[in-house]
Amino acid sequence: MKTKLENVKPKEIETRSFEIITEELGDKKLQPGTELIVKRCIHTSADFDYADNLYFSKDAVPKAIEAIKHGACIVTDTQMVKAGINKKALAKFGGEVYCFMSDEDVAKNAKSAGSTRAAASMEKAAKLGKPVIFAIGNAPTALVRLYELIQEKQIQPYLIIGVPVGFVNVVQSKEMIMETDVPCIVAKGRKGGSNIAACICNALLYMIDNERDYWK
């Protein structure tokens, strides 16, 4: 039996992918204003569970978009997330992407405190003096420290994207973030990852400025 391939031009592959996602979602109702983010997560992972497990706090998307438009920076917990974010699109609004995980002072502070580099990098981010969006795709300890910094009133993020993947304290750390009054987008449960954190950031950017027909 000969395998039959779809005849799709290279520049049309992404458009066709989103058509398939929309078709397979069928009558599934998504929270208004979040559809493109959910679909991009599915597109990135081929996992339709994101249609059910993505949590959006009230007005998280419009608040995040306004923050980006006013030059908010993005702080991540992995170089992979940083690499995956469309920095050119973010720079149009004056924003930058930071990842402090490899910084010597972060490693030193983590060792001194007996904590993780992820937690120490959140402490460094709290001293940036800039409006910040956090995109956490790997380390639940980053979310736990963010929660503590928020409770201590040392930081007030414009948005937390909480999508670490794994088993140890992953679910708990996400629930802690959902308990705060900070706008958040969280992948409930164990799923997530650096690719999902980056794609949510890009989805927000593309909702502001994008020429793709399927994205309008």
Score class of each variant (00 low, 15 high):
Q156Y: 09
Q154D: 13
S112L: 15
G166I: 05
D181A: 10
E179A: 10
E179F: 05
V144N: 15
I136K: 01
Q172T: 14
V163S: 04
T180Q: 11
E123S: 09
V163E: 03
R117F: 04
K130W: 10
E175A: 09
P131I: 07
E179K: 14
T141S: 13
M178E: 10
S115W: 15
E148Y: 07
C184N: 11
F167L: 11
D181C: 08
P157W: 01
E175L: 08
K130G: 10
G114E: 12
K111N: 13
M122P: 08
N169A: 12
P131A: 11
K153E: 15
L159S: 00
F167D: 13
L146Q: 01
P140A: 13
A119P: 11
Q172A: 13
A118E: 05
I185P: 02
N138K: 10
V163L: 03
Q154E: 15
S115K: 15
I150H: 02
A120E: 10
K174D: 06
L146V: 05
L146T: 02
S173V: 11
Q156P: 10
M122D: 04
G162R: 00
G162Q: 02
K153I: 11
V186F: 00
E152Q: 12
Y158W: 08
V165R: 04
G166K: 09
I155L: 13
